[in-house]
Design a protein around this nucleic acid. Sequence first.
DNA 1: TAGGCCATCTGGTCCT
DNA 2: AGGACCAGATGGCCTA
Length: 375
Amino acid sequence: MSSYCALRDTSFDDFEEYTSEDSGFEKSLESNMPPLVQDVPPPAPKKRGRKSLKDKQLELLSAEFKPSLGVQTSTPTKPSSEDSKPKRKYAMGKSRITRNRSPTQVVKIKRFRRLKANDRERNRMHNLNEALEKLRLTLPTFPEETKLTKIETLRFAYNYIFSLVQVLELDDDVQLDLEKLQSLTLSGERINKELFDAMFINPPPHFMEPGYGCNGDFYSSMHQYGVTMNQPAGYDPRGFSNQNYQMFRGAFEAAYNGGAPKTLNHTYPPASYHHQEVQPPVYNADYYSAQPQPNVIPPNFNNPAPYPTPDCSVNPSIPTLQSPQQQTMHYNSSFYSQTPPWSETSAYSDSGYTADHCRKSMPLQAPPPCQAYPL
DNA sequence: TAGGCCATCTGGTCCT
DNA sequence: AGGACCAGATGGCCTA
């Protein structure tokens, strides 16, 4: 994990600690202030974002605290205990910053701490963005090479995980590759990215009509597209036809094969599962690279049963993964940008259908938090 | 040029 | 006291 810090760990406050009794505070700043340089090179040049004010500020501070030639510039050492003077007792109500400080000194100290906080915040955001980038790379790749925005990445990740869980929960008696998927038609329409988008991810607004459980969801979309849903007694919205299941399964397998990480070791199920008494086995990437295993059902809120232990090491059926370049499914940005309809903050809630409504009208459950690919 | 996206700064709050 | 976290503000870059 890369990180950088524009300011050294040597804090102004520590520095202040052993100069607090130095009447020549300004002078000590000049001679003892740690150099304000970057320890580590900054991240790669950014495409966006304004030019950092940090550099200007640090330049100013550096100039202000720049040691003159011939002046000791190494980090000053704290005087030994023998040399230390008796501790001064400070007036009540005075902070370490304000005591014995001129207004100018207080301003400078606060400014220095502010710059340190800025640096920490910047580094924190870089770490956050780095984690988001890992998530972005975990998702199916984009032939168009359009970088997902942050919100798109998060929304698509949620949908993607949800979809994969749904696939795993379905019956697993169909083997379908991408070619077969692409040869299928639905209502006389060849499956293309627009139809895929509309069916699975981003149903058009006019599909958002009451009557199909959670409006805007996958099943509603399929129904709107004329998909015949099996509706046996005790209607289960997941029991759609075999052909439509094939399309669903194949589509997400294609995405799955195109974007699943290949080399990382992961643990699964999520940490929340560890709260249960049964200790689950550790799954590796091969497990997730393999075809969904029959009778291997991840626990959800309705099915907290223990995980079976797949023996991937001796399973010869693990398929060869497609590289992202081989993936032929095409998605555009809108594929990723929709708030999941089961989300509490979904735009669908504006139409009166909230996540709570979805839960009541559909037995589908949101997937458990997935930690298969730790960031 | 407006709007989206982003990085950064900033002050407040909470926690250790 | 100081760090982590958060959200609002600001301004730069890019695109339609």
